[in-house]
Simulated scan of single mutants.
Amino acid sequence: MAWFRREHGFSRTELGTIVGRCAASVASYEQGLRKPPRPLLLNLLDAVPVGHTSFNDLACWYRYRPITTIDPAEYRSIHEYLGLFRVGRTGLEPVTEGL
């Protein structure tokens, strides 16, 4: 996350504002003390697109399972499956862009 922040010239406070976290949380993600939740990574990619970077590119850094399908039978829990979606203007939208 630090490379992303520096690449775009954000302070920890500015990046925290973009993703809805405090500067201390951003610092703990950068230092590897905490793992950012998946929705935070998705919000980050939505707020500040990074070329052809997708969720799966970031997922491997934080040891999240990459998105390969939206078939619920392929996931260990309903929580893991629902992490693939977000509420959009028209209801639930799959988070598969960039894949």
Results as ranks from 00 to 15, higher is better:
6 R>Q: 14
52 H>M: 10
78 I>N: 11
94 P>I: 06
21 R>P: 08
91 G>R: 08
13 T>R: 13
76 R>F: 00
87 V>D: 08
13 T>L: 15
69 T>G: 05
97 E>G: 12
47 A>S: 14
65 R>W: 02
74 E>I: 06
41 L>Q: 02
95 V>G: 01
49 P>H: 05
75 Y>E: 04
99 L>C: 08
24 A>N: 14
88 G>L: 01
83 G>D: 07
55 F>V: 01
37 P>H: 09
1 M>S: 13
99 L>G: 06
26 V>C: 04
14 E>G: 01
22 C>M: 10
69 T>M: 04
55 F>K: 00
47 A>M: 05
66 P>Y: 06
6 R>A: 15
37 P>S: 06
38 R>D: 00
46 D>W: 13
57 D>F: 03
2 A>N: 14
3 W>L: 12
8 H>W: 05
97 E>Q: 11
36 P>V: 02
91 G>I: 04
83 G>Q: 07
22 C>P: 11
42 L>V: 15
24 A>H: 12
88 G>I: 07
82 L>I: 08
64 Y>T: 06
32 G>V: 06
92 L>P: 01
50 V>R: 15
73 A>R: 14
43 N>L: 13
33 L>G: 08
74 E>F: 04
19 V>E: 00
34 R>I: 03
86 R>A: 07
83 G>F: 03
36 P>T: 02
78 I>G: 10
20 G>P: 10
35 K>D: 06
26 V>G: 03
38 R>C: 01
10 F>N: 02
87 V>K: 14
47 A>E: 10
97 E>I: 10
58 L>M: 12
64 Y>W: 09
41 L>A: 00
40 L>E: 00
37 P>Y: 02
86 R>I: 05
25 S>H: 07
90 T>N: 15
87 V>N: 08
61 W>N: 11
11 S>E: 08
22 C>T: 13
69 T>E: 05
47 A>I: 05
37 P>L: 03
77 S>N: 03
11 S>N: 05
